[in-house]
């Protein structure tokens, strides 16, 4: 029970600190789960994130379910996911009930302009660690560059993830037969 509450609390904190959804949670996840608790490796964060792109649902929820089931099975998955969604539920209910013009308040607009920049700054560190983690040789460097190039074309991340996985499989197979 202690461990379940601990899972709930850890993801409660992550849910309360994630501004901007999806990828913006990565710096917090790295901090809480990789650096502080050692529950995940950086590789696992990337793997779960990739799977989160391919599977239905909100990516943040998918990652919390993954960590929960890894730590404590099915019940752990439920606790970590409930922890993740509790802060947004409380905050949104309060705003919906009391502050219907919340998003239009000047002070809120200024605060969030600043928060977006802070998230951006934290993302640079996450990107550096993800790059070091994934780019190991010329082939992964090419895959990385090609993926970044999709900034200029409109392609779904789902497609990118599928192609990258297939490319990895074919390249490894080719490398083996060449030897």
């Amino acid at each position: 029970m202690r461990e379940l509450l601990f899972l709930f609390w850890t993801f409660f904190k992550i849910g309360a600190c994630t501004f901007g959804g999806g990828y913006a949670m990565l710096p917090i996840i790295q901090r809480e789960l990789v650096d502080k608790r050692g529950w995940l490796t950086n590789d696992e964060v990337v793997d779960y994130y990739a799977i989160g792109q391919l599977t239905p649902g909100v990516i943040a929820v998918n990652v919390s379910t993954f960590v929960g089931v890894k730590r404590k099975g099915v019940i752990g998955a439920v606790f970590s996911t409930l922890g993740m969604v509790t802060p947004p539920i409380i905050i949104i209910l309060l705003i919906a009930a009391l502050l219907t013009n919340f998003a239009h308040l000047e002070v809120v607009k200024h605060a969030f302009a600043g928060i977006r920049v802070a998230v951006l700054a934290m993302m640079t560190k996450t990107i550096v660690s993800m790059f070091k983690n994934g780019v190991k040789d010329w082939f992964t460097l090419v895959l990385f560059i090609l993926t970044v190039a999709t900034i200029f074309i409109d392609v779904s991340p789902v497609v990118v993830v599928l192609i990258a996985a297939a490319a990895g499989i074919f390249y490894k197979r080719w490398a083996v037969t060449k030897k």
């Binding site: 590789d43 990337v46 793997d47 994130y49 990739a50 792109q53 990107i127 993800m130 790059f131 983690n133 994934g134 780019v135 992964t140 460097l141 895959l143 990385f144 560059i145 090609l146 993926t147 970044v148 999709t150 990118v160 993830v161 192609i163 990258a164 996985a165 297939a166 490319a167 990895g168 499989i169 390249y171």
Partner: peptide, 8 residues
């Protein structure tokens, strides 16, 4: 193959 793509 996925890891560098996720970074991208």
């Amino acid at each position: 193959g996925l890891r560098p793509a996720v970074a991208g």
